[in-house]
Each structure stands twice: as C-alpha cells, then as structure tokens.
C-alpha cells in the first residue's frame, strides 16, 4: 500500500519481498521476489553476493518495467532441504493446545490495550 501511494505521487518503486501472494493481491507495482523464509528478503544473512544480486535486480526492474504488476523472481534457494516451508506457521498434533493459549493471550492483550487507550485513531 505504501508503494501504491508513492507511485501515485510520481515516485517509482520496487518491493523486495518473499510473500508473493500477499504482494500480488495488494496490487504491488514492481516486485523482486526471493523465495526465501520471511525475514531476509534481500538474501541470506551475510551472503553478500546474493544480497548484491537482489539489489541489482531491483534497480534494473525500476527502469525495465513497462507496466504495473511485473514480478522478477530470483533463482535463490534457502537450502537443499525444503523443510523450512513446512515449519513456518505449522499446525501439528503437538502444538494445537499451545496455539489456542497463544490466541487467548493475544485476545487478552488486545483487551488490555483497549482499556489503556493504546490504539491508533
């Protein structure tokens, strides 16, 4: 949404991200997509070659894109194993109770925030 406001103000944008479905649904003007775990969209920690390649792709896309909604997917991989994909936000027989407790605590915290006036207008 920030990219959309900037584009409307005449500023060219590119989003570097790893959650492609969310970015596409939101109507993002230019996307450089790294299919990596959320947290390091520019590249693996301390992998300067990968990070430089991502920045390069972002700068190129800023100038090469002719239409909105263009996606440049980079070939980077997190690891040979794909296990990380299953681990993220996993729901298993072992964590069901824990997730419900998390939800309860989340709801209590929201209630406390409201009572303390901690919310944005």
């Amino acid at each position: 949404m920030a990219a959309r406001a900037l584009e409307s103000a005449g500023i060219a944008t590119v989003v570097i991200g790893s959650a492609l479905d969310i970015l596409q649904q939101a109507g993002t003007p230019r996307i450089v997509f790294n299919d990596l775990p959320l947290g390091n969209p520019v590249g693996k920690p301390f992998d300067r070659a990968m990070q430089n390649q991502t920045l390069e792709a972002a700068l190129e896309l800023l100038y090469q894109a002719q239409n909105p909604g263009v996606v440049q997917q980079l070939p980077n991989q997190w690891s040979a194993s794909e296990d990380w994909r299953d681990n993220f936000m996993a729901i298993t027989a072992f964590n069901r109770e824990q997730l419900l407790s998390l939800g309860d605590e989340n709801r209590r915290q929201r209630q406390r925030n409201r009572e303390q006036g901690l919310f944005r207008p």
Partner: peptide, 18 residues
Amino acid sequence: VSWDKITTHTNDRESYFP
C-alpha cells in the same frame, strides 16, 4: 514483526535493509 523465527534470524541488517 512476523517472520520465520524458526528457520532464520535478522542479525544481518543487510539481509533486510541493504
């Protein structure tokens, strides 16, 4: 912030703010 705290870390600023 929501990210994959099981798999990775954010100790390298360049990985999200180059």
